[in-house]
């Protein structure tokens, strides 16, 4: 969609309504003032020599601005609702067919289990790529029972899948609050301050140890980083599907973390070997030799064992806290 009318209003109005235009131009090294001239006139009067020094031609700048505005408008339009995700089986590494058709709905948690190198990541990648028999596994992915539009593959505004990888390192030199603000701005959320406060509050609830909004992201502990990223994913990300590559045990309340994502009506796929997380899932896909070998539904007996496992886990957590507090463990 070309936002033609926007090129002819006075800049004072256009920049007020679309403040990101100023940021766009500044990323090319250009300045713009809220005057009575129009964006069209502004672009017409740019000095070609200046543009050459900045490394862009007038045509390229106009095309980029058109594309940029189209993307910004798309970001503000509502996302197509995902009611279901269907995985239609392909074949494993030896060519054996999977014979599986599995449909997932928002709020469901599916765990993916299997040894390292068995093909867990390939399954997650097939979903992210919305495979149509064109990946090595030959799997097909349907959204709302239909072959989805290929826009899902490349859209940065409407990503189908948000991925939470095991690695939670940060390299940016920003505080937790600045970092979340920058992320919120890039997603063009309507009430950023409220969302930032919510994310920081949730992250603190998930993390074992509290952190302040001014903490540099690079000094967060492993657990705090994971908590921040899960809260960020739940509250900021519009992607209807969350792919999680193991939530590590240390320093985070995993049950609360999962509940938070489920509450946001996401379809959750989680690669894990953690017995507690695996039993929290509605079912488990067992991956062997590149293929989905079987599907295990969590049974009532397993659910009962989950309670016992959680008690065991809480006991360990209490011991961990005693160690942290400088106590001895002679009596446990």
């Amino acid at each position: 969609m070309k936002a033609t009318s926007l090129y002819h209003k006075p800049l004072a109005v256009t920049l007020e309504e679309h403040p990101y235009i100023e940021d766009f131009l500044s990323s090319f090294g250009l300045e713009i003032q809220p005057t009575t001239t129009s964006l069209e006139e502004y672009l017409d009067t740019l000095d070609p020599d200046l543009l050459e020094d900045l490394g862009i031609s007038s045509e390229q700048l106009r095309k980029s601005l058109d594309d940029f505005l189209a993307g910004m408008l798309a970001l503000q339009s509502p996302l197509d609702k995902v009611e279901s995700l269907t995985i239609i089986g392909g074949r494993d590494k030896t060519g054996r067919p999977e014979h599986i058709e599995l449909t997932l709905r928002p709020g469901e948690v599916v765990c993916i289990v299997g040894p390292t190198g068995s093909g867990k990541s390939r399954l997650l990648a097939d979903i992210e790529w919305v495979a149509q028999g064109d990946t090595p596994t030959g799997r097909k992915i349907l959204i709302n029972d239909q072959v989805p539009d290929s826009k899902w593959r490349f859209s940065t505004e409407h990503k189908l899948v948000a991925q939470l990888s095991q690695n939670m390192n940060f390299v940016m030199d920003l505080s937790a609050e600045e970092f979340i603000r920058m992320h919120a701005e890039s997603r063009l959320v309507t009430n950023p301050e409220e969302k930032i406060a919510q994310i920081l509050e949730q992250a603190n609830e998930l993390a074992g140890e509290r952190f302040s909004p001014n903490t540099p992201v690079t000094s967060l502990s492993g657990g705090q980083s994971r908590a921040l990223m899960i809260a960020d994913m739940a509250i900021l990300s519009k992607s209807p599907i969350a792919l999680i590559d193991e939530i590590e045990n240390a320093g985070i309340d995993r049950k609360k973390a999962l509940d938070l994502l489920v509450k946001e009506e996401k379809i959750i796929l989680m690669a894990t070997h953690d017995p507690i997380l695996a039993l929290m899932g509605d079912r488990r896909l067992v991956i062997r030799n590149g293929g989905i070998d079987k599907i295990i539904e969590s049974s009532p007996a397993e659910r009962k064992n989950l309670i016992a496992l959680e008690e065991l886990d809480n006991k360990l957590l209490a011991l961990r806290n005693r160690i942290r507090g400088g106590e001895t463990l002679e009596n446990i």
Binding site: S165, F170, V171, M172, L236
Partner: peptide, 11 residues
Amino acid sequence: GDIVSQAEREV
């Protein structure tokens, strides 16, 4: 991308 978090990749 494996070295940084999802949010940092998005930013």
